[in-house]
Design a protein around this nucleic acid. Structure first.
Lengths: 160, 160
DNA sequence: GTTCAATCAATCGTCTGCGATTCAATCGCG
DNA sequence: CGCGATTGAATCGCAGACGATTGATTGAAC
């Protein structure tokens, strides 16, 4: 009949929103991980924080925030929970007492072995070919980068 | 030096995780929307729920849950907040009193006009060509679908 | 028709996630 | 040196998000 279907003609169609696709795919990942992480006693964000620490131990809260794109108001409670589980330790940096350094404990490091089993499971769950997975990952990283730098009124007013 | 860089050799590298790319891109979208939605007095999930209602009014909580991939435990408070803002109304279905029907109020319908300005802003923020946006959206929807249907031990035990 | 199972929404507890604020430590500039 | 500005983490309040459970309604089987 018409050139456009009834659905795509609606400018507010949920399924055509990239943001909703990202949003709902994120929840779907969360659910897949939850099942796998239950055995380790971790939540999904806790797991991601540990991955960051397994990559590089002894980071400040600020460094972790930059890598995970989270605020200190999110990280502090997250880190405290992992500390109370005995997986990491917090201590003020003696050279700059404003900063808090986060270090893995022996138990935290040991948990990495079990965590190694998870990525293959998720890969299987995604059903993607390795090349598609890499492409999607980098496209989303690029998108995130563009969105992070977006200023609603850029160009209308001077830099400062 | 080695065939693989130090980074990609690590099987637990955060930046190589598709899940993390989705997770962090989702947060980035959330932040972009927050700025745009502040003027409407809406949060990002509230906006998505309204989009679903603008597409089709008079839906049950369960229907909305299926479209948004959310549980009733998430939806009920969300809907109640929008109700207290006067944007929608809840009422038990007289034919089946277990179900609650959610309907837009005049104010809720009117808000759609202002909301129409948002997608172009987000499109601009994403910096994507329309065809890339469509491709990414459908790839993520497909991924979500696969993840939703994933059962950790599928094949090991019979269907029921 | 009664009873037992299934369905649907709501509730509760817990864990994110963020903006705004606070507090201490450090930096920088005169 | 000294003081105001900046930085870094923590705190608070609020809004998701989900699993587990509850309560009410409906459906089904006998």
């Amino acid at each position: 009949m018409a050139k456009q279907s009834r659905k795509s003609a609606n400018p507010l169609n949920l399924d055509s929103f990239l943001c909703f696709a990202v949003y709902s795919a994120g929840h779907a990942f969360n659910r897949v991980y939850k099942a796998l992480l239950d055995e380790l006693g971790l939540t999904y964000p806790q797991y991601l924080l540990l991955v960051a620490l397994w990559e590089q131990d002894d980071q400040t809260v600020g460094m972790l925030g930059e890598k995970l794109f989270l605020e200190s108001s999110t990280l502090t409670p997250l880190i405290k929970r992992l500390e109370s589980m005995g997986l990491l330790a917090r201590s003020r940096d003696p050279l700059d007492e404003r900063q808090v350094r986060v270090r893995l404990t022996a138990r935290g490091r040991a948990l990495r072995e079990k965590a190694l089993e998870i990525p293959p499971c998720v890969l299987a769950a995604s059903g993607l070919k390795p090349e598609d997975l890499r492409r999607l990952t980098s496209e989303l990283a690029a998108l995130r980068s563009v969105l992070e730098n977006y200023k609603p009124d850029a160009g209308r007013r001077p830099e400062r």
